[in-house]
Design a protein around this nucleic acid. Structure first.
Length: 302
DNA sequence: AAGTGTGCCAACCGCCTCTTC
DNA sequence: TGAAGAGGCGGTTGGCACACT
């Protein structure tokens, strides 16, 4: 018998989040930063458990999340990484910083599983060899996937995704409704659009709640973010100043690191990108994905 | 138009790991 | 050293939307 669930208290709300709840949560995180989830429901008045708040933030509200269709390249990366790592969705997500583990898991279960059933032989690790990945390279990848020290030794390479998130967060903080149309700085826009669509969808059921896009965007304005003292180090976990560690700070920093790991999907147990990036992101890999997709399509025809 | 089937995805559940005391 | 609590993760489910009959 395990521990009782944290959410079985009376008065805890379950089910879909409302835009109002989203706004409360986002506002709170704007002010305090992500982390210390236990205190979120008490401090915000949300009738949600801490887990639910964390999940909502990491899977939906977190800036930089890309929604919509997966590209063939993303698809290929998921297939390759799943073959290497198994159903370690959080680890796989760390290589697709704009996607959440939940998204990847859903996409795997609803799309890729079926595809691979039709064409199973392309996906096993053994088949990677026949697809051009030699045994030595494979062993390196497999070793790296279990070697945390390797990850530590290659932080500069791994930081690429961390910096990406950091940039997105900074962009999010900078952005106001008028500036969110800038290319490469669309995280705020994504968030607002998502929330607006959600709102719109729900308003379809409850017309009395219908508000205009302008009104909604003004509610979700992130201009206040300029006043928020986000701990920049939470976006750059690889370069912390260890010299100013007090017991209090130490505790906070550890929490921040956890938060950072979560927010960036940055798992230090992951293989360093130096190996994977070269392989997964190169032209040949993309070509293999394309080739596989074509073969899948052919197999579905026959 | 109504009923039924299917796909998708947000959210929940329960277990595991890590941290704290 | 072990218990308790918090956060993280993967599997699963419920409900909505759309397609089909």
């Amino acid at each position: 018998m395990g521990r009782p669930p944290c959410c079985d208290k009376v008065g805890i709300k379950k089910g879909p989040w409302t835009p109002e709840e989203d706004i409360i949560l986002v506002s709170y995180i704007q002010e305090h930063g992500p982390g210390n989830w236990r205190s979120v429901p008490t401090n915000t008045g949300l009738l949600r458990c801490s887990k639910s708040c964390r999940l909502r933030w990491t899977n939906y509200l977190r800036p930089g999340i890309k929604r919509g269709n997966f590209t063939p390249h993303e698809e290929g990366m998921i297939i390759h990484l799943q073959a290497l790592l198994g159903n370690k969705w959080a680890a796989i997500a760390s290589y697709l910083p704009q996607r959440t583990d939940n998204d990847i898991k859903n996409y795997w279960n609803t799309h890729l599983k079926k595809k691979l059933k039709k064409f199973p032989s392309t996906t096993t690790t053994d088949q990677l060899v026949s697809k051009g990945l030699n045994v030595e390279k494979r062993n390196t990848l497999e070793f790296a996937s279990t070697s945390s020290s390797a990850a530590v030794a290659t932080t500069s390479t791994y930081a690429s995704s961390t910096e990406n998130i950091s940039r997105l967060l900074q962009g999010w903080m900078r952005s106001s409704p008028k500036t969110t149309t800038n290319d490469g700085d669309n995280s705020s826009l994504i968030l607002k659009e998502t929330a607006y669509q959600d709102r719109k969808r729900k308003s379809g059921q409850e017309d009395r709640d219908l508000i205009s896009r302008e009104e909604f965007e003004s509610i979700l304005s992130f201009e206040n973010m300029n006043n928020v003292s986000w701990d920049k180090s939470t976006c750059e976990s690889t370069s912390k100043d260890e010299s100013s560690v007090t017991p209090e700070n130490n505790k906070k920093q550890k929490a921040d690191v956890n938060t950072n790991n979560n927010n960036n999907n940055n798992n230090n147990n992951n293989p360093p990108l130096s190996f994977l990036e070269k392989w997964l992101l190169d032209e040949n890999s993309a070509g293999q994905v394309e080739e596989m997709n074509q073969m899948m399509e052919l197999s579905s025809i026959f």
